[in-house]
């Protein structure tokens, strides 16, 4: 009998509230890259009031939302979900939280008319700035990837996030604003949990990070995954980096027919 086909079970938190920058792009990107490798892929939507069942998922995704919607998520996260997510993250498991979702991983997101509690899985606090930090961004991470760990994307956030002294950033800012526009740091990482302001569909612009998450979710090494033809993905990353003003000097050749 053949061994059971591997399957990635993705839990998406608040898909109807935290989805503002086309977060769906990340989910579809993971789905196709699993399907093309003959890996199963299953999405469970976990909304306000829903139980996040321990042992029912291999990867968690939290997207970005408007402040009004984020308030409801912050309230709902307290208690049961905070406990489940705290265990999950504490054990080094994979989770990707983008923009609003990233803010909710920390202790709180506060402003003059705003006080949203987070789950304190990451030692970070976010305060609302007067201006939004908007634009293309490129950061350098210490993750091993074919772009020397560089990720490219777009940021658009009012929140200024400050990391606690023991908290590692996801990377350092090459171009753009990052966590607070002044520290030179972007995002946060704890084990395989990643929080970042590179919003919305950051995985399509950084294909290897999707594979990194898939590998972590299935308990595999990056090298264990079937190699795909990534010519389009490489081109999309290159152009996103160019848009941010952080050219990819040693990009592999790509013919744009």
């Amino acid at each position: 009998m053949l061994s059971e086909r591997k399957r990635l079970r993705l839990a998406v938190l608040y898909p109807t509230l935290l989805n503002i920058y086309a977060d769906r792009g990340n989910i579809e990107f993971l789905r196709r890259r699993c399907e093309w490798r003959d890996l199963g892929f299953q999405v469970t939507a976990v909304g306000v009031g829903d139980k996040l069942v321990e042992g029912s998922f291999d990867l968690v995704y939290m997207g970005g939302g408007q402040d009004r919607d984020q308030v409801r998520c912050g309230e709902d996260l307290q208690g049961h979900k905070t406990a489940v997510l705290g265990d999950w993250i504490g054990q080094g498991n994979p989770l990707l939280a983008v923009c609003g979702g990233y803010q909710l991983l920390g202790k709180a997101y506060t402003g003059p008319d705003l006080s949203i509690p987070g789950i304190s899985a990451i030692d970070a606090t976010t305060s609302q700035g007067k201006t939004r930090l908007i634009g293309p961004i490129a950061i350098r991470t210490d993750l091993a990837g074919p772009t020397d760990g560089v990720l490219a994307g777009f940021e658009n956030h009012a929140g200024r996030t400050v990391l606690g002294s023991g908290t590692a950033p996801l990377g350092t800012v090459l171009k753009g604003h990052g966590n607070d526009g002044s520290s030179g740091l972007e995002g946060a990482r704890r084990g395989a949990t990643i929080g970042t302001y590179l919003h919305g569909p950051l995985l399509p612009k950084n294909w290897w990070l999707a594979d990194w998450l898939i590998a972590k979710s299935l308990g595999l090494e990056l090298e264990d995954l079937l190699q795909l033809d990534d010519a389009l993905e490489i081109a999309a990353h290159r152009v996103a980096r160019t848009a941010a003003g952080a050219e990819w000097a040693d990009a592999p050749g790509f013919e744009s027919n």
């Binding site: 792009g25 399509p204 612009k205 389009l232 744009s256």
Partner: peptide, 25 residues
């Protein structure tokens, strides 16, 4: 367009076979 490559990627991931997608900026 200036972001033709990400557009091409979008169609690829929407299920269009690669040989039906051309990128001409």
């Amino acid at each position: 367009g200036t972001r033709a490559s990400e557009a091409a990627l979008r169609f690829r991931y929407s299920g269009v076979p690669a040989d039906r997608i051309a990128t001409i900026s």
